[in-house]
Nucleic acid binder design. Sequence first.
DNA 1: CACCTGCGCTAAATCGTGTTAGCTTCCCAG
DNA 2: CTGGGAAGCTAACACGATTTAGCGCAGGTG
Lengths: 354, 354
Amino acid sequence: MGRRRVTLADVAKATGVSTTTVSLVLAGRGAELRISDDVQRRVRSTAQELGYRRNTLSVGLRTGHTQTIGFVSDTVASSLLAGNMIKGAMEAAHQRGFMLFCGESGGDPDVERALVEAMHDRRVDGIIFAAMYTRTVAVPEGLDDGPAVLLNALPAAYSPVPSVLPDEVEAGRAAARILVDAGHREGVHLVGAGPGLDDVPPNSIAARERLIGMLQVFEAAGVEVVSAHQCPKWMPEDGYDATREILRHHRPRALVCLNDRLAFGAYQALAEAALSVPDDVSVVSYDDHPIASWVRPRLTTIALPHHELGAKAVEVLFAASERRRRTKSAPVVHRVPMSVQLGESVRTVPAPSR
Amino acid sequence: MGRRRVTLADVAKATGVSTTTVSLVLAGRGAELRISDDVQRRVRSTAQELGYRRNTLSVGLRTGHTQTIGFVSDTVASSLLAGNMIKGAMEAAHQRGFMLFCGESGGDPDVERALVEAMHDRRVDGIIFAAMYTRTVAVPEGLDDGPAVLLNALPAAYSPVPSVLPDEVEAGRAAARILVDAGHREGVHLVGAGPGLDDVPPNSIAARERLIGMLQVFEAAGVEVVSAHQCPKWMPEDGYDATREILRHHRPRALVCLNDRLAFGAYQALAEAALSVPDDVSVVSYDDHPIASWVRPRLTTIALPHHELGAKAVEVLFAASERRRRTKSAPVVHRVPMSVQLGESVRTVPAPSR
DNA sequence: CACCTGCGCTAAATCGTGTTAGCTTCCCAG
DNA sequence: CTGGGAAGCTAACACGATTTAGCGCAGGTG
């Protein structure tokens, strides 16, 4: 247990060469600096034999590169989202031999700054700053002291840091298209946001962009949205309340819920009113939260590509580290497509005969 | 951005003293080595002024301590559990100025080993090896090369590594007691495991220990468990199927579901059979998954103390690092209590008049 | 024989900090 | 005037790697 690790010097001594040689060989620069094949073989073999592993701290101190990325998020716990984003990032990082430092701020700007500093202290090669729901964020001071990426977030003020986000507008179009293609023309209601583009939860990019996409398609198809209900929290209870409110005045034929938890609440309200999904009311929602596949009938939902988002962030970060050496260009926004998850919550409406 | 960080030498030069002095002062050992108050003040003030931060890599290289903990889990994504355990660990670590390296193996032993090695390469001060559902695990080779803790898991074979686990037996007792105290004596069924102690999902400690606790209390109260249904996966669908099976032969008065997702499935089956919770059937379950508070009526559930588990693991890890220097004692199992979350899913049954 | 070139490797500096051993200065007793 | 001790600091090495500059040798050339 407490036994000393094998160092470069140990390998050098055991092979009978200098540490320089060992270092070069193991870095794959042996040929370049004309170390003979024989020596290379011997070095590799003794290194293997002694179980040599390079000390990342030492390398980091010398070269400035630590094979490490910092991942700072506001909240990992309250949503599955975080887990899969982190997972995507970890896998992408691990493929390149990188590890992830994880930190959670709870949304506190002081903690955010402290985390970013602590990561720079540990000389991370870059930082991913992630939000758990798609929104605008204040970029913490010091974030752009090194390569950085915003994940699932846009900077509130101007910032040179690039962003990686789901393509919410297209997701909005996709959701609307599902209803339009299924023949729905009337009795369409929105649960969670609208009717105006500003009737959204604070800082929510997702809500606004989904609305934009939906309204484009509905308008083009001549579908009128009967009512829309803004909900600040997007939890099941809010969906339940909003749906009850709708049922008080209308007989809806289709609900678009701005996420699956709202849809879950809507299901409850519909069940209470003895309305069946999808025979009486079609339901479409967003996120592909696990609950979407647990309810009966399963929800048709536009999936947040958490895993891809995380992986993409790492990719962009690497690209940024490269570019940084050459030139600084304008900040970029990368959009990751959202896919349709088909459930059984949408009914095909027979086209009205003209 | 690319500007060089301030080093100890910079502070020393600016103050007009040696790096040794600065190092001592900032380490709080100034008095001990009789550096004058005046110099101490000046050092601190210039350090502050220049925005000096110590380079953790360098310190780690020199001292062997990196203020860093490795967190290796099998799966973070598929369960909320992970998120809160990690969060608990992160907070506890952050309080002591530590950061967390996160890695996920997906259950692959090769990846586990690789992660543990990668963390040792980065000279972590200790490793938390976490399982996402309480079970026995094969301790990966190399884990005990440094301080380590198993979180939510017990070693499959003997291992000197301590464990941190929820107190599942007591949780089992608590669940049974809820029903017994509410007056339930008949029509009690188990969903997810049983009737035998070996009728559990593979390696599941939770199932087995919950069964033990429940059977103790039921037996003591003279309550007979009418039927029990083992489910390998513990997903809503399994709970749905098991409950349908129960309803085919019985008229249950109370269901104990071995987790909330099973209970969610049970709710669906009960609703289909037009049975009301809790008026017709009481339901108790485990975990306090978010779904527990989303369903109507809310579930009464025995909560997994994820957050505390994570924090406790860190605490045990620190204690282990201390102890390691002195003596190695027998491996310890730490149990964290599970708390009852009251919902409205249990009905009080009037005592039968004798 | 002196000089140059290419080959195959190594000595030594370096990264930023912690730590041990010791240096200088001052004061005072003998 | 000298020796000794305390006060207050510093020189120098170590940690484990990378990297630059260059050394010694063999062989060919004028």
